[in-house]
Amino acid sequence: MATRMGARFTGDLAELRYEPVAKRVRAVAGGRTFADSRRAVLVWEPKRVVPSYAFPLPDLRATLTPSDDASAPEHPVQLAEGGPPVLDPRTAFAVHTCPGEPLTLDSDGVTLPGAGFRPADDDLAQHAVLDFAAFDEWLEEAEPIVGHPRDPFARIDVRRSDSRVRIEVDGVVVADSAAPRLLFETGITTRYYLPREDVRMDLLTPSDTRTTCAYKGHASYWSVGAHRDLAWTYDEPLSDARDVAGYIAFLTERVDVVLDGERLPRPVTPWS
């Protein structure tokens, strides 16, 4: 019987997973380089969908000491209706789902409490997983990365489309376009990015919300009526998403989408 690849990856979410990378990876905080390695590995703890970088202990430029377990709430969500529960990426690094030892890192007086974790696993015992958010800068080769490490098994594709997309909010048409750009992202529902001239900008109110995506960059948001942060844009996206620069997308989980005359069901995702 054939195996659906998406189901294979979903079925592995309960396991501790890792993957070596060939890039030179550096982690910097307080002007100190805490890690510099060409032997880093990506690590996914059980129920994590976003990876963290782990480094061989000799490649860390820091003193490691045991750290007290820090309490932090879990934020379980479902990637899809009926799917296994996973941890929302906003769940703090301090939540560990496999046995191991939390670590504090110190480099020349710059101390990062609980920013490391040494898994009790034969393949990873000589590595320390680092908290992405605890560092000021991450570099892959000479390029900074944002948000979190990129997953080598995930990608985005942007495609120009001649389909007609209509967006309705509470029965009111807020956008109607025959020139959308569709963004397909591994594990994420299709997003419809529309030219601003096809959006009722008079119905959108700018929000102070900002988010960061490791693949697309920094997004700014709009609210529509009482619906906060219902639409967003990437004004200066990263290279993979440059074709949606300035275009506007709507949270399809909370609006009604009519695609070529067919009203689509609202997807069930962590953003529903």
Rank of each mutant, 00 (worst) to 15 (best):
V95Y: 00
D229P: 10
P119N: 10
R17I: 06
D106E: 15
T189Y: 06
R61Y: 13
A125W: 15
P20H: 13
E185G: 13
H127R: 11
L139Y: 08
L103V: 09
T3P: 03
H218D: 13
E236V: 12
F9S: 14
T212V: 15
E45C: 04
R159G: 06
H148E: 09
A226R: 12
A120F: 11
I167W: 04
R254P: 02
G82L: 06
S67C: 05
P119E: 08
V268M: 09
W232S: 09
T212M: 01
A178Y: 02
R210P: 06
R38W: 08
R159E: 12
W271Y: 13
V169K: 08
R196G: 09
P195N: 07
F132T: 07
L264A: 12
L264S: 12
V172C: 08
E19S: 15
E185P: 14
P89E: 11
L194N: 02
T212L: 01
T252R: 11
F117T: 03
A2Y: 14
D162T: 12
A154E: 14
I145S: 01
M5V: 14
A175I: 01
T233I: 06
L251C: 04
R159D: 14
W271K: 14
R228Q: 12
P85E: 13
R200E: 06
I156H: 15
T252P: 06
T233L: 13
S161N: 00
E236D: 12
D69R: 14
D68T: 03
P113Y: 09
F153D: 14
S239Y: 03
A241I: 01
R263N: 05
L124E: 05
A219Q: 01
R118V: 07
D151G: 05
G116W: 02
L203H: 04
P152N: 12
D36R: 04
A72I: 00
H148M: 00
H127G: 09
A241N: 02
V21E: 12
S107T: 14
L139H: 07
R164A: 08
W44Y: 03
D170N: 15
L203V: 00
D229R: 11
A80Y: 12
V199Q: 05
R150M: 03
A2T: 11
P144H: 01
C213S: 11
I156W: 08
F135M: 04
F250S: 00
E141K: 03
E45W: 01
V25Y: 05
L204R: 02
D59F: 13
A175V: 01
Q78P: 02
F93G: 10
Q126E: 14
D136T: 07
R38L: 13
A134L: 02
W271I: 05
I156K: 09
L112H: 05
R48Y: 02
D136F: 01
R39A: 15
G225H: 00
L60R: 10
E143M: 07
H148S: 09
L230G: 00
L238P: 04
R118C: 10
T63M: 14
E81F: 08
A115Y: 03
A219Y: 04
A214E: 07
L64W: 01
S272C: 12
W44Q: 06
V255M: 00
A40V: 09
P149I: 03
A231M: 06
A62M: 04
